[in-house]
Amino acid sequence: MPDNVQKPAAPVRFHVHLVSDSTGETLMDVMRASVAQFEGVEPVEHLYALVRSPRQMEMALKEIDAAPGLVMYTLVNSELRRALENRCADLGVPAIAILDPILATLSGFLNLPMSSRAGAQHDLDAEYYARIEALNYAIVHDDGQGSNLEGADVVLLGVSRTSKTPTCIYLAHRGVKAANIPLVRGASLPPNLASLKKPLIVGLTAQPERIVQIRRNRLLSLNEERDTDYIDDQRVRDEIVEAKRLFAKHGWPVIDVSRRSIEETSAKIINLLNKRRQA
């Protein structure tokens, strides 16, 4: 690299310890969403899930001692909280109870006490089983498989590498039953697709350059270096044009996923579902 060209700065790495009496999913989501707001940082994640006894807490504290850093926690047991907070104070590291402000505000607003049950948000309620059912549905109806499209909440259509499968899996975790069907030139679609009543049918598309890039990376991961129609620029453009014509013909909503994350695409689909239900 020439001397006059500035080298990219190395990422700032720091330890972050996530201590939870439940699965730790909430902590992980909050931490990653927060860190994403800062450029050039790289957290070294330490997760301690299902910490519900003094022995389990002591094991977590030993690791915090060995690699001090930011501590984030969700704990309802007062003795465990006190042990964690005291050790963090001794080490001089910040400890953040991420749900405390929200729970305190809710408690005051509702004029109700908190339940103080560890992992209360993960009770095996009807919503939990709905998510499991949706996940099973997504797996069975992935990539044009399965036969019960009328049982879907959403059916996604799109050419190869438009993130159909991961979007369906993410939607399933939100309790939405989603099937996906690939658009392949020369291949016919399910004959009853246009006549479906219950599901919302959504077309996924992307910029041709983006599709070609993803497909090339996919082939390289499979140690396939030969050029094929699968990554031919004009062929991909034709695929996308044909897909858009199909979507327009049936009046199906279209989402361009080129610069959208899976979460953003799913949020857009859920908004479309809600509008349809309200209408």
Rank of each mutant, 00 (worst) to 15 (best):
D3E: 13
N4Y: 14
N4W: 12
Q6Y: 13
P11H: 04
V12F: 14
R13A: 11
H17L: 08
S22K: 01
G24P: 00
G24A: 04
T26K: 06
T26P: 05
M28K: 08
M28I: 10
R32C: 12
S34D: 02
V35C: 10
E42M: 08
E45G: 02
L47P: 05
L47T: 06
Y48W: 07
Y48N: 00
L50Q: 13
V51S: 01
S53H: 06
P54M: 03
R55A: 12
M57K: 01
I64H: 00
A67N: 03
G69C: 10
L70N: 10
L70M: 14
Y73S: 01
T74A: 07
L75A: 08
E79N: 15
A83F: 10
N86I: 14
R87T: 10
G92S: 13
A97S: 14
L99S: 13
L99M: 15
P101V: 14
I102M: 15
A104M: 15
G108V: 09
P113A: 06
S115N: 15
A118H: 02
Q121G: 08
H122G: 03
L124G: 02
D125W: 03
Y129H: 11
A130R: 08
A130H: 06
L135H: 01
L135D: 00
N136L: 09
Y137I: 00
I139P: 02
D143P: 06
D143T: 11
G144P: 03
G146W: 05
G146S: 10
S147E: 15
E150S: 15
G151R: 08
A152V: 03
V159P: 00
R161D: 08
K164Q: 14
L171M: 07
A172Q: 05
H173T: 15
H173V: 09
V176D: 01
K177G: 01
A178N: 05
A178S: 06
A179E: 01
N180Q: 09
I181C: 03
L183M: 12
R185C: 12
S188E: 15
L189Y: 10
P191G: 13
P199K: 09
L200I: 09
L204G: 04
A206R: 01
I211R: 02
I211A: 01
R215S: 11
R216M: 13
R216F: 11
L220A: 12
E225C: 09
E225V: 09
D229Y: 05
D233H: 11
Q234T: 01
V236Y: 00
V236D: 00
D238K: 05
E239V: 02
E242L: 14
A243N: 01
F247W: 02
F247C: 04
H250T: 11
G251R: 03
W252L: 11
P253M: 10
V254F: 10
I255H: 03
D256T: 06
D256H: 03
S258I: 08
S261C: 11
S261R: 05
E263V: 14
E264H: 05
T265W: 03
S266C: 10
A267N: 12
I269R: 00
I269D: 00
I269E: 01
L272C: 04
L272S: 01
K275W: 04
K275V: 02
K275H: 07
K275L: 07
